[in-house]
Nucleic acid binder design. Structure first.
Lengths: 124, 124
DNA sequence: ATATTGTGTATATACGATATATACAGTTTG
DNA sequence: CAAACTGTATATATCGTATATACACAATAT
């Protein structure tokens, strides 16, 4: 499970986990019915509480990306590529709409945003 | 004072206020030494506590955008246009760098981001 | 069968950030 | 100098996040 927790980002841990796992599922890196690692294992690896991992798993289940079998584990849902792609576009679109509000508030033009994007995209 | 509070955005009230006032200062809509309205007035208009407004004012002061005279009020700092522009670019740049992380996590290409931007920029 | 080990779940709690009401202190103004 | 205005400080409430610990269910080895 490739998860990286940032303590400086300000985003809640459970949300960081959700974003990373959901992205992996949406990109097809975690095929249908793949068994996610036990929450205790993830908690130990990341040195956080099992409850926090469970919270992330709950969000994933609520988003329809995984399903739970009590006593067995959690598994990646069976979703068609077009459904995954729709979810991808939805997540990106919602985020972009909100991000745009801030840039507009600051009076940044479309051209300026694009210029900054091109400068930054290949860095980081 | 043009301030709009959203209860659905998830962002703290004081932060929403900070972002909007700082943007107005940075864009030159609030000239140097303009007296901000009393925190009680803003609190009454927005139907929030004076403490929350004060919190926003504190952030503005900490950012060097306003200064306080006890008993008199809070005023817009005297900053040169190039300083304001630097602050604008800094705020936008930091935000964009963080936003980009998420798009990259979702595997969105630079071209896709630009396409979404162009579709959405003139809406909202 | 049943004890053991592994899975997710529920309860009760701690902590920090946000937001609040109310009382306080400094400055202007009549 | 009193009244009316400014920002400030203290103590409190509430909510989201994160936690430890105890619980319930399923698989599996004996």
């Amino acid at each position: 499970m490739d998860i990286v927790i940032s303590n400086t980002s300000g985003d809640p841990i459970y949300q960081q986990i959700f974003e990373q796992i959901s992205a992996q599922i949406i990109k097809g890196q975690l095929p249908s019915d793949t068994c996610l690692p036990p929450i205790r294992t993830v908690a130990k690896e990341l040195r956080i509480s099992v409850i926090t991992v469970k919270r992330a798993w709950e969000e994933l289940e609520h988003a329809g990306l995984i399903y739970t079998m009590a006593g067995k584990g959690c598994f990646v849902s069976s979703l068609q590529p077009n459904v995954l792609n729709a979810k991808r576009n939805q997540l990106a679109g919602e985020k972009l709409a909100k991000d745009l509000e801030y840039y507009k508030t600051l009076g940044i033009s479309l051209e300026e945003i694009i210029a900054m994007l091109k400068k930054n995209y290949d860095k980081g």
